[in-house]
Design a protein around this nucleic acid. Structure first.
Lengths: 99, 99
DNA sequence: ACAGAGTATTGTACTAATACAACAATTTGT
DNA sequence: ACAAATTGTTGTATTAGTACAATACTCTGT
Protein backbone atom coordinates (compact mmCIF):
# COMPACT_ATOMS: atom_id res chain seq x y z
CA UNK A 1 0.00 0.00 0.00
CA UNK A 2 2.25 2.80 1.15
CA UNK A 3 5.66 3.62 -0.17
CA UNK A 4 8.69 2.98 2.00
CA UNK A 5 7.52 0.58 4.69
CA UNK A 6 5.22 3.10 6.22
CA UNK A 7 7.92 5.68 6.91
CA UNK A 8 5.84 8.50 5.61
CA UNK A 9 8.16 11.38 6.37
CA UNK A 10 5.67 13.42 4.40
CA UNK A 11 3.64 13.85 7.56
CA UNK A 12 4.49 15.72 10.70
CA UNK A 13 7.94 17.10 10.18
CA UNK A 14 9.12 16.53 6.71
CA UNK A 15 12.33 17.96 5.47
CA UNK A 16 12.58 20.08 2.37
CA UNK A 17 15.58 19.97 0.10
CA UNK A 18 17.03 21.45 -3.02
CA UNK A 19 18.70 18.37 -4.37
CA UNK A 20 16.56 18.19 -7.50
CA UNK A 21 17.34 21.81 -8.28
CA UNK A 22 21.03 21.44 -7.65
CA UNK A 23 21.07 18.36 -9.84
CA UNK A 24 19.17 20.14 -12.59
CA UNK A 25 21.55 23.07 -12.51
CA UNK A 26 24.42 20.70 -13.03
CA UNK A 27 22.71 18.33 -15.44
CA UNK A 28 23.14 15.41 -13.08
CA UNK A 29 20.89 12.39 -13.05
CA UNK A 30 20.05 10.73 -9.75
CA UNK A 31 22.13 7.81 -10.75
CA UNK A 32 25.13 10.02 -11.39
CA UNK A 33 24.74 11.87 -8.11
CA UNK A 34 24.15 8.65 -6.20
CA UNK A 35 27.25 7.32 -7.81
CA UNK A 36 29.34 10.30 -6.80
CA UNK A 37 27.99 10.08 -3.26
CA UNK A 38 28.42 6.33 -3.07
CA UNK A 39 24.82 5.61 -2.23
CA UNK A 40 22.08 3.66 -3.94
CA UNK A 41 20.37 5.77 -6.59
CA UNK A 42 16.98 5.13 -5.05
CA UNK A 43 18.17 6.67 -1.83
CA UNK A 44 18.54 9.96 -3.67
CA UNK A 45 15.00 9.59 -4.93
CA UNK A 46 13.64 8.91 -1.48
CA UNK A 47 15.40 11.92 -0.06
CA UNK A 48 14.53 14.26 -2.93
CA UNK A 49 10.83 13.70 -2.62
CA UNK A 50 10.95 13.75 1.17
CA UNK A 51 10.13 10.10 1.65
CA UNK A 52 12.68 10.12 4.41
CA UNK A 53 15.43 12.28 5.76
CA UNK A 54 19.06 11.50 5.10
CA UNK A 55 21.45 10.67 7.87
CA UNK A 56 23.59 13.57 9.05
CA UNK A 57 26.50 11.68 7.60
CA UNK A 58 24.94 11.63 4.15
CA UNK A 59 23.82 15.23 4.51
CA UNK A 60 27.45 16.14 5.07
CA UNK A 61 28.54 14.19 2.00
CA UNK A 62 25.92 15.96 -0.10
CA UNK A 63 26.87 19.32 1.35
CA UNK A 64 30.52 18.73 0.58
CA UNK A 65 29.76 17.46 -2.90
CA UNK A 66 27.89 20.61 -3.83
CA UNK A 67 30.20 22.86 -1.84
CA UNK A 68 27.25 24.33 0.01
CA UNK A 69 26.30 24.47 3.69
CA UNK A 70 23.78 21.92 4.82
CA UNK A 71 21.30 24.69 5.51
CA UNK A 72 21.40 25.68 1.83
CA UNK A 73 20.30 22.20 0.82
CA UNK A 74 18.01 21.05 3.61
CA UNK A 75 15.44 22.94 5.60
CA UNK A 76 12.46 22.36 7.85
CA UNK A 77 10.70 25.25 6.09
CA UNK A 78 9.96 25.05 2.38
CA UNK A 79 12.59 26.79 0.28
CA UNK A 80 12.05 29.92 -1.73
CA UNK A 81 13.04 29.17 -5.31
CA UNK A 82 16.65 30.10 -5.92
CA UNK A 83 15.54 32.09 -8.93
CA UNK A 84 13.45 34.35 -6.69
CA UNK A 85 16.20 34.44 -4.13
CA UNK A 86 18.46 35.94 -6.77
CA UNK A 87 16.14 38.04 -8.91
CA UNK A 88 13.24 38.69 -6.60
CA UNK A 89 9.60 38.11 -7.42
CA UNK A 90 7.96 40.65 -9.75
CA UNK A 91 4.52 39.14 -9.78
CA UNK A 92 1.54 41.12 -8.57
CA UNK A 93 0.54 39.44 -5.31
CA UNK A 94 -2.62 37.29 -5.60
CA UNK A 95 -5.62 39.58 -5.18
CA UNK A 96 -8.45 37.26 -4.16
CA UNK A 97 -7.01 36.65 -0.69
CA UNK A 98 -8.47 39.57 1.22
CA UNK A 99 -9.94 37.73 4.26
CA UNK B 1 30.60 -6.45 25.39
CA UNK B 2 30.68 -3.23 23.47
CA UNK B 3 28.56 -0.21 24.15
CA UNK B 4 25.60 0.46 21.92
CA UNK B 5 24.85 -2.84 20.21
CA UNK B 6 28.08 -2.86 18.29
CA UNK B 7 27.43 0.41 16.50
CA UNK B 8 30.94 1.60 17.11
CA UNK B 9 30.78 4.91 15.35
CA UNK B 10 34.17 5.46 16.89
CA UNK B 11 35.74 3.64 13.98
CA UNK B 12 35.88 4.54 10.34
CA UNK B 13 34.04 7.79 10.04
CA UNK B 14 33.12 9.12 13.38
CA UNK B 15 31.61 12.51 13.75
CA UNK B 16 33.03 15.14 16.04
CA UNK B 17 30.87 17.59 17.89
CA UNK B 18 30.96 20.51 20.24
CA UNK B 19 27.89 19.70 22.25
CA UNK B 20 29.74 19.20 25.51
CA UNK B 21 31.47 22.56 25.11
CA UNK B 22 28.28 24.36 24.19
CA UNK B 23 26.57 22.80 27.16
CA UNK B 24 29.40 23.76 29.47
CA UNK B 25 29.38 27.34 28.24
CA UNK B 26 25.72 27.51 29.11
CA UNK B 27 25.83 25.46 32.28
CA UNK B 28 23.45 22.90 30.86
CA UNK B 29 23.31 19.30 31.99
CA UNK B 30 22.63 16.58 29.45
CA UNK B 31 19.29 16.05 31.04
CA UNK B 32 18.39 19.68 30.64
CA UNK B 33 19.51 19.80 27.03
CA UNK B 34 17.79 16.51 26.23
CA UNK B 35 14.72 17.93 27.79
CA UNK B 36 14.83 21.08 25.70
CA UNK B 37 15.41 19.01 22.59
CA UNK B 38 12.73 16.47 23.46
CA UNK B 39 15.02 13.48 23.30
CA UNK B 40 16.13 10.92 25.81
CA UNK B 41 19.01 12.23 27.91
CA UNK B 42 21.15 9.23 27.03
CA UNK B 43 20.84 10.08 23.38
CA UNK B 44 22.75 13.28 24.10
CA UNK B 45 25.41 11.23 25.82
CA UNK B 46 25.72 8.83 22.92
CA UNK B 47 26.06 11.66 20.46
CA UNK B 48 28.47 13.71 22.57
CA UNK B 49 30.96 10.93 22.88
CA UNK B 50 30.54 9.89 19.26
CA UNK B 51 28.86 6.58 20.00
CA UNK B 52 26.60 7.34 17.11
CA UNK B 53 25.68 10.16 14.84
CA UNK B 54 22.44 12.07 15.27
CA UNK B 55 19.79 12.09 12.61
CA UNK B 56 19.76 15.17 10.40
CA UNK B 57 16.48 16.00 12.03
CA UNK B 58 18.03 16.06 15.49
CA UNK B 59 21.09 17.89 14.21
CA UNK B 60 18.74 20.61 12.99
CA UNK B 61 17.00 20.78 16.35
CA UNK B 62 20.35 21.10 18.12
CA UNK B 63 21.53 23.68 15.63
CA UNK B 64 18.40 25.73 16.14
CA UNK B 65 18.56 25.38 19.87
CA UNK B 66 22.06 26.82 20.04
CA UNK B 67 21.45 29.28 17.23
CA UNK B 68 24.46 27.97 15.36
CA UNK B 69 24.92 26.39 11.94
CA UNK B 70 25.18 22.63 11.90
CA UNK B 71 28.77 22.92 10.70
CA UNK B 72 29.65 24.81 13.87
CA UNK B 73 28.48 21.91 15.99
CA UNK B 74 29.27 18.82 13.95
CA UNK B 75 32.25 18.02 11.77
CA UNK B 76 33.98 15.07 10.15
CA UNK B 77 37.32 16.61 11.14
CA UNK B 78 38.15 17.14 14.82
CA UNK B 79 37.39 20.65 16.00
CA UNK B 80 39.96 23.18 17.05
CA UNK B 81 39.08 24.35 20.56
CA UNK B 82 36.90 27.41 20.45
CA UNK B 83 39.30 29.09 22.85
CA UNK B 84 42.08 28.77 20.30
CA UNK B 85 39.76 29.74 17.52
CA UNK B 86 39.18 33.03 19.33
CA UNK B 87 42.49 33.76 21.01
CA UNK B 88 44.94 31.76 18.96
CA UNK B 89 47.50 29.33 20.32
CA UNK B 90 50.58 30.87 21.93
CA UNK B 91 52.34 27.66 22.84
CA UNK B 92 55.74 26.87 21.39
CA UNK B 93 55.10 24.02 18.97
CA UNK B 94 56.20 20.58 20.26
CA UNK B 95 59.91 20.18 19.45
CA UNK B 96 60.45 16.42 19.40
CA UNK B 97 58.61 15.96 16.10
CA UNK B 98 61.41 16.61 13.62
CA UNK B 99 61.13 13.46 11.42
C1' DA C 1 6.47 4.20 -33.01
C1' DC C 2 10.34 2.69 -30.66
C1' DA C 3 14.45 2.65 -27.82
C1' DG C 4 16.81 4.30 -24.03
C1' DA C 5 17.38 7.13 -20.10
C1' DG C 6 15.50 8.70 -16.10
C1' DT C 7 12.32 8.21 -12.46
C1' DA C 8 8.62 5.90 -9.53
C1' DT C 9 6.79 1.86 -6.98
C1' DT C 10 6.79 -2.26 -4.26
C1' DG C 11 8.80 -5.54 -1.48
C1' DT C 12 12.50 -7.62 1.36
C1' DA C 13 16.41 -7.32 4.33
C1' DC C 14 19.94 -5.15 7.32
C1' DT C 15 21.85 -1.77 10.28
C1' DA C 16 21.91 2.45 12.84
C1' DA C 17 19.39 5.96 15.65
C1' DT C 18 16.52 6.40 19.47
C1' DA C 19 13.76 5.20 23.80
C1' DC C 20 13.66 3.26 28.08
C1' DA C 21 15.21 1.00 32.42
C1' DA C 22 18.29 -0.20 35.99
C1' DC C 23 22.46 0.31 38.09
C1' DA C 24 27.57 1.79 38.62
C1' DA C 25 30.84 5.40 38.70
C1' DT C 26 32.10 10.06 39.04
C1' DT C 27 31.64 14.82 40.23
C1' DT C 28 29.96 18.62 43.01
C1' DG C 29 27.85 21.13 46.81
C1' DT C 30 27.63 21.72 51.57
C1' DA D 1 32.42 12.79 54.27
C1' DC D 2 27.87 12.49 52.60
C1' DA D 3 24.07 13.34 49.64
C1' DA D 4 22.60 14.75 45.32
C1' DA D 5 23.33 15.47 40.66
C1' DT D 6 25.56 14.17 36.62
C1' DT D 7 27.48 10.94 33.68
C1' DG D 8 28.64 6.13 32.06
C1' DT D 9 27.34 1.24 31.13
C1' DT D 10 24.62 -2.64 29.74
C1' DG D 11 20.73 -4.63 27.87
C1' DT D 12 16.33 -4.81 25.26
C1' DA D 13 13.02 -3.07 21.93
C1' DT D 14 11.27 -0.11 18.13
C1' DT D 15 11.67 2.53 14.13
C1' DA D 16 13.94 4.87 10.31
C1' DG D 17 17.66 5.12 6.82
C1' DT D 18 19.79 2.52 3.31
C1' DA D 19 20.72 -1.34 -0.09
C1' DC D 20 19.10 -4.15 -3.56
C1' DA D 21 16.02 -6.15 -7.11
C1' DA D 22 12.36 -6.21 -10.25
C1' DT D 23 8.96 -3.98 -12.67
C1' DA D 24 6.21 0.05 -14.31
C1' DC D 25 5.81 4.57 -15.83
C1' DT D 26 7.50 9.03 -18.12
C1' DC D 27 9.87 11.40 -21.16
C1' DT D 28 12.85 12.46 -24.59
C1' DG D 29 15.23 11.97 -29.46
C1' DT D 30 15.28 9.81 -33.87
Amino acid sequence: MESVQNSDARNGDRLYNRIAVLRAERGLSRGALANALQVNYQTIGYIERGDFKPSLELAFRISEYFGLPIEAIFSRQPFRPLSEEVYGNRNTPPSGDSK
